[in-house]
Simulated assay, not measured.
Amino acid sequence: MEVNKALTTRKAIRKFTDQQVTRTDIEAIVQLAQTTPTWVNSQSQRVYVAMGDTLSSIRTAQHDLVTSNAPLNSDLPMGHRSDWSTIAQQNMQDWNAGLVKTLGSDFRAKIDQEAANLYNAQAVVYLALTKGYSPWALYDLGAFGQSLMLAAQERGIDTMPAYQFIKYPQMLREHLSVTSDEDLILGIGLGYRDTKAPVNQIVADRMPLDAILTIQD
């Protein structure tokens, strides 16, 4: 698959089918993502994958936490929309308006329903960093995550990068071998998109190129 096709066909999938992702595919995807450059070749990322019975246990535990309104305590603070720039906040508002058009006025309930089920992801990749990490390591981890998603797209596997996967880190540490000196930064769901699901029809528009690009010659 060409890079431009992988970039333009990849999208956030909020409902996956029950078709399983193989261990062989996951290993190949992560290995490809390892080619991502890092600061002085630091390779700070640590990768944990939950699938099968482990993921089923996590899904059940998360559902219980969500339904009991357990407080969120992610290792990387979520922050508030008001902390973002004016432009970013406007883009978020525009996206919300698009959700109403696509899913209706009850869009939040529909999205939350799929999120509570971890989008029916058939595998979840958890990206972690050792505590005390450099801000540059966060950049490197983001680049690693993008490479991983593009590698998955090349193999016909869809993805969903989401805060939902890592908002209960203490629960995750009960099911995964994440050490106490590591922060869980991001989770990426893997699977095959349910093409009939309304939540998968969401479109995220991009700003005009001249709104973000400055070329000085």
Rank of each mutant, 00 (worst) to 15 (best):
Q19H: 14
Q146Y: 07
I157W: 06
G132N: 07
K15W: 00
G187M: 00
R46A: 10
S68I: 05
V21R: 01
P37F: 04
L184E: 02
T8C: 08
Q122V: 03
V199Q: 03
Y139W: 11
L186G: 01
Y126P: 00
Q20R: 09
E174M: 11
T36V: 11
P135N: 08
Q146K: 03
G145I: 06
N96C: 10
Y168D: 02
Q170Y: 09
A6S: 12
Q90D: 14
L138V: 13
L129S: 05
D53V: 13
I185W: 01
D94F: 00
L127A: 00
R10P: 03
I212C: 10
M160H: 08
R173K: 10
F16C: 08
L176M: 15
G52C: 09
D194S: 06
D183M: 10
E27C: 06
S74A: 14
G79L: 08
L99F: 06
A137F: 11
A128N: 09
R10I: 04
I29R: 00
G79E: 06
R193A: 15
D140A: 03
I202V: 15
D112T: 09
E182W: 07
L55Q: 11
A152C: 04
Q45K: 03
S57E: 15
S134C: 06
M78T: 13
Q113R: 11
S57C: 11
G189D: 04
V49C: 05
T102E: 14
D183S: 15
L72F: 06
M171G: 02
I157E: 05
A121D: 07
L65C: 03
Q93T: 13
Q122D: 09
L141T: 00
V125H: 00
T54F: 08
R108A: 12
N73E: 05
T17H: 13
Q89N: 04
I157F: 11
R14S: 07
D75K: 02
A152Q: 01
F107V: 14
L72M: 12
D18I: 09
P77F: 08
T22Q: 12
Q43E: 15
L7K: 06
G191I: 02
P135D: 13
G104C: 12
E27M: 04
D64L: 06
I13W: 00
T130N: 10
A12P: 07
F16K: 03
N117K: 15
Q170M: 03
N41Y: 09
D217E: 12
L129T: 03
L72D: 07
Q62V: 05
A143C: 10
L213C: 09
D106L: 01
Q62E: 11
T86M: 08
Q153E: 09
G52P: 06
L127S: 01
G52F: 00
I29K: 02
D106Q: 10
T38D: 12
Q19M: 09
V125K: 00
G142W: 00
E154R: 05
L129Q: 06
L72V: 14
L72I: 14
D25A: 12
Q146S: 07
L141V: 03
N96Q: 13
D106G: 02
D158R: 01
T214E: 12
V203F: 14
